[in-house]
Design a protein around this nucleic acid. Structure first.
Length: 280
DNA sequence: ATACCGACCTGTCAGC
DNA sequence: TGCTGACAGGTCGGTA
């Protein structure tokens, strides 16, 4: 589901709705697939903590936590001092919703954080590709933020790489936050064929790509992300950027620029959509 | 070091 | 109706 614009939208909603809240208690489902630590470690890290801020790092949701009263704080462990980060990656189908406790618990709910206000923050993920972790030190997923990096540094990321430019865009250790939809859409706007070796893309073309990536991400954020099948933000609202997709999900439809038929091919195991005439 | 590819999961939809 | 296979917003880890 979620690439940078969707996560940004969710984070904005969570910041508005749960920042300042204290987590009273945590329920964790029996399926341990999405957990990077044991349920006990995660529950201990979250319970009694206040959510100071919710922000985004690549496709990760980061909750900055602190203990409201460090002196009388919780048990032992790294969190006694009262700070840490709760990190949630939504994988393909993960959702974070804020609800009243009376609302039915959806199938595939793996974690419920009960908040002091009485509301609940729930993590739902049918495919269980999402991940939940807690960190006592700072959290850095690696890679650079596309909306913060300079043009020069962006161009440097691809130097000498033999992998297809599409695969390089998806590599979170280089650029973080761009996923399959926005990689395809950015390459279309920059008129670059997704199969091209990254190293073979000229400096001028990479400069175009830099601006295309940022333009696509900004537009998508403004529209609340792309809702393909079931994506909704933390308020349950859908995004609208899917209406602006020019290649993604448009196989065999006409190119919006030249009318040629949009093609789909698999690159690095991922579906890739492009216009064979516009993209060289 | 780098790059490909199957594995990890459930759900949905098209085709027969 | 129901079965099968392809496909889905993402990342890992093993292998070449």
């Amino acid at each position: 589901m979620p690439e940078l614009p969707e996560v940004e939208t969710i984070v904005t909603g969570l910041q508005r709705r749960v920042a300042g809240e204290t987590i009273d208690s945590v329920w964790i489902g029996s399926r341990r697939q999405p957990l990077k630590s044991s349920p006990r470690v995660i529950a201990r890290a979250l319970e009694g903590k206040r959510i100071v801020r919710v922000h985004r790092a690549g496709k990760h949701i980061v909750f900055d936590l602190e203990a409201p009263d460090a002196v009388g704080g919780k048990r032992s462990g790294n969190y006694r001092r009262g700070w840490g980060h709760w990190v949630v990656h939504l994988g393909m189908t993960g959702r974070m919703v804020v609800t009243e406790p009376s609302v039915d618990v959806a199938k595939h709910t793996h974690l419920i954080a009960r908040l002091a206000s009485g509301r609940e923050l729930r993590f739902i993920d049918p495919r269980m590709f999402g991940r939940i972790s807690v960190h006592s030190a700072g959290f850095d997923p690696g890679g650079v933020e596309p909306l913060e990096v300079s043009e020069d540094r962006f161009i440097e990321l691809f130097r000498g790489r033999k992998t297809p430019i599409k695969s390089a865009l998806l590599n979170q250790k280089l650029l973080r936050g761009v996923g399959n939809i926005y990689a395809d859409e950015s390459l279309f706007r920059a008129r670059i064929c997704p199969r091209r070796r990254a190293a073979a893309v000229s400096r001028a073309e990479l400069a175009n790509l830099y601006h295309s990536v940022r333009e696509v991400l900004r537009e998508a954020i403004a529209l609340g992300g792309s809702s393909i099948s079931d994506y909704v933000d933390s308020d349950g609202d859908e995004g609208f950027f899917q209406l602006r997709h020019r290649v993604y999900g448009r196989e065999s439809e006409p190119c919006t620029v030249c009318g040629s038929t949009i093609r789909r091919l698999v690159i690095g195991g991922r579906s890739s959509h492009y216009c064979p005439k516009c993209q060289k």
